[in-house]
Amino acid sequence: MTLAEILASLFPAGHDIVRQGGIMLGSGPLKSGGRVTVVGVADRTPLGVDDALVLAGHVLAAIDRGGKDPILVLIDSDSQRMSKRDELLGLNEFLAHLGKCLMMASLQGHHTVGLLYGHSAAGAFIATAMSTRSLVALPGATPAVMDLPSISKVTKLSIEALQEKARSTPVFAPGLANLAQTGAVLATWDDKRSLADQLQALLDAPATPDDQRDRLGKERKGRPKAADIAARVHDLALR
C-alpha cells in the first residue's frame, strides 16, 4: 500500500497530517470519536538529529495536552542517518530522547501504536517502532536490523551460507516474518480490510501494561531463552 492509500484507509473522514521533509506530523479522527496523534517517517528517510527532535516535540505536545488519546507512529524509514555531523552532535541522545518521549506517553496512558508499512533498520527502528507499546505491520513491510551483505562481511560467511542458516532460525536474517516470530511485531494487519477498523480494534483490546515481547517470542518459538532468563534474573535479584 502507498502512504496515501494507508492514510485514506486509516482516516476515511480526512486528517490534518502534514509532511515536513521526510517526516510527518498531525492527527486524525478515530472511529470511536476521539483523535489519534500521528507522527511518522516516510519515504525511507534516514533518521537524524533534526527530525528526531521535531518528532519528539510533537509527542511531548500530545502528552502536554493531557487526556489519553493514542499516538500512532507510521514508519517507512532507513536506518539512523549515518554522518559525521549527526554523531558529532550526539545522535544517541536524540534517538533515545524520541524513544523516551514515546515510552513516557505510554506510561501516561496514551496507547502508542507503531505501524510499520515500509522499511526500517537499526537505530531508527529502535527509536520509533520498538519504542511503541503495540507494534503492528502491513504485509510487504521490510524491517531489517542489518542487511545480509553487512552480516556476510562481519561473519565472513557467504550470502548463500547465511540464507541456508536463516531457514532454521529467525534470529538474524532480515524480514517481517523473522521479527514477528521473535516477538517484536504484535500482529500483521490485513491490507484488504479497513485500517481504521483494525486500529480501533487494537485500541479497544485490553491494555497490557507490561512488556510482552519476550513472552510472545517464546510462544512463537522465535526466542527460546529470553523470557526465562529475564524472569530468573528478576527473581534472584528480588530474593
Binding site: L107, I126, M130, V145, S150, I151, T182, D211, D214
Partner: peptide
C-alpha cells in the same frame, strides 16, 4: 550480528526496562 533480530529486540526491551 549473528543474533541481529533478537539482539535489537533486547535493546528495545532494555530501554523500556530502564524507563520503567
Amino acid at each position: 550480528l549473528q543474533e541481529a533480530n533478537v539482539g535489537e529486540l533486547a535493546i528495545g526491551e532494555v530501554m523500556r526496562a530502564v524507563i520503567e
